[in-house]
């Protein structure tokens, strides 16, 4: 009973902070993707595992690498490089799968390298500036500044939201169909 009250208090204060700065601070897991550092709310991270063999799933967009067996659970794996339209990189010893839990769904995301866990206060998070038409900033919650460095804070729920994936599937499926007809012609 008492605990709950304390927790509620904490929640309200963090909300106040949020109102003040526009963003909610806290602990973030940072990782690298094409030499850029990204942050991910630590509360959404379930665990970090090394790269392992992934079973490809047909008829899915190419950023979905497939599924793995995580101690008896089948979870989908998304390659964040492909998802963000970057070039695919061969997996190495440093490549990691970050297992995240977003709105009840467990998924893995492949990143180049996991860096560290840092504290970023709400006031140190800035609104995402507009990069122009070519850059999609929908997935970026804000820009965190710590120790003179800048980290892009991801809105992982948006990155992995179901509608998003289905939309992407619709976008990519004509391409796939094209590939299919091509193989048929061969």
């Amino acid at each position: 009973m008492g605990n709950e009250i304390v927790m509620q208090k904490e929640r309200t204060t963090s909300k106040e902070e949020e109102v003040q700065s526009g963003y909610c601070g806290g602990k973030f897991l940072t990782f690298f993707l094409a030499n850029k550092e990204y942050g991910l709310e630590i509360l959404k991270v379930q665990e970090i595992i090394g790269i392992l063999e992934i079973t490809p799933v047909p008829k899915t967009p190419d950023f979905i690498k497939g599924v793995i067996n995580l101690r008896g659970h089948i979870i989908p794996i998304v390659d964040l490089r492909l998802k963000f339209g970057m070039k695919e990189l061969e997996y190495s010893e440093e490549t990691c799968i970050i297992v995240v839990k977003t709105s009840g769904i467990i998924m893995g995301i492949i990143v180049d390298r996991v860096s560290e866990v840092i504290d970023i206060a709400g006031v140190d998070i800035e609104k995402t500036p507009s990069f122009g038409v070519n850059v999609n900033t929908d997935y970026i919650l804000g820009i965190g500044k710590t120790g003179g460095k800048v980290k892009l804070i991801l809105d992982i729920d948006k990155v992995l939201s179901e509608e998003e994936v289905i939309d992407m599937y619709k976008m990519t499926s004509p391409k796939q169909n094209g590939a299919e007809t091509a193989s048929r012609e061969n």
């Binding site: 089948i74 769904i105 998924m107 992995l160 289905i166």
Partner: peptide
């Protein structure tokens, strides 16, 4: 088992 989340409807 289900494939989980986004892969439910293949």
């Amino acid at each position: 088992r289900p494939l989980g989340g986004i892969l439910g409807n293949i």
